[in-house]
């Protein structure tokens, strides 16, 4: 029997902004790169995102936020995943993230951040290269 490892990514929109064009564009690009993308919809609480990530056993969580609340919401998702024994999931973020917020977010466990001007291809490559290898 063939064993197929396919990368699974949860794309989530924490917080209150209703702009998901970016999230959808990225979801399509990931799909075209052979990745399975689970999209959970707008206005999610960090706890909902963590729960979906665990139930879906994803390799990567991609957070998109355009409301400015990323410094609160992104680290909270990482924290909740760690509390529930899922700290091995790679968490990345995107949206309107100012340069000077990036070091703090990375220190909190959001491993890569893609602010305005990021290229789709770079994000896809990053996810492909850094998605954790599962046994």
């Amino acid at each position: 029997m063939t064993t197929t490892q396919r990368i699974r990514v949860l794309i989530a929109k924490p917080g209150l902004d209703g702009h998901d064009r970016g999230a959808k564009v990225l979801a399509l690009a990931l799909r075209d790169a052979g990745i399975e993308v689970i999209y959970t919809g707008l206005r999610q609480q960090p706890a909902q995102i963590a729960s979906a990530a665990i139930q879906e056993d994803v390799d990567v969580v991609g957070l998109s936020c355009l409301s400015g609340a990323h410094n609160v919401l992104f680290p909270r998702v990482v924290e909740l995943l760690r509390e529930q024994g899922a700290g091995d999931i790679l968490v990345v973020g995107g949206g309107t993230i100012p340069e000077h917020d990036i070091p703090g977010l990375q220190a909190s466990g959001v491993q890569a951040l893609f602010g305005p001007g990021s290229s789709i291809a770079d994000i896809v490559d990053y996810i492909r290269e850094h998605a954790p290898q599962r046994s």
């Binding site: 799909r31 790169a33 990745i35 689970i38 999209y39 959970t40 919809g41 999610q44 706890a47 979906a52």
Partner: peptide, 20 residues
């Protein structure tokens, strides 16, 4: 996708009331 092998799984969007 028969082309890339990827997929968009969006059924959950309708089931948000049960996430927690």
């Amino acid at each position: 996708s028969p082309y890339s092998g990827g997929a968009i799984l969006g059924d959950r969007i309708r089931m948000q009331q049960h996430y927690l």
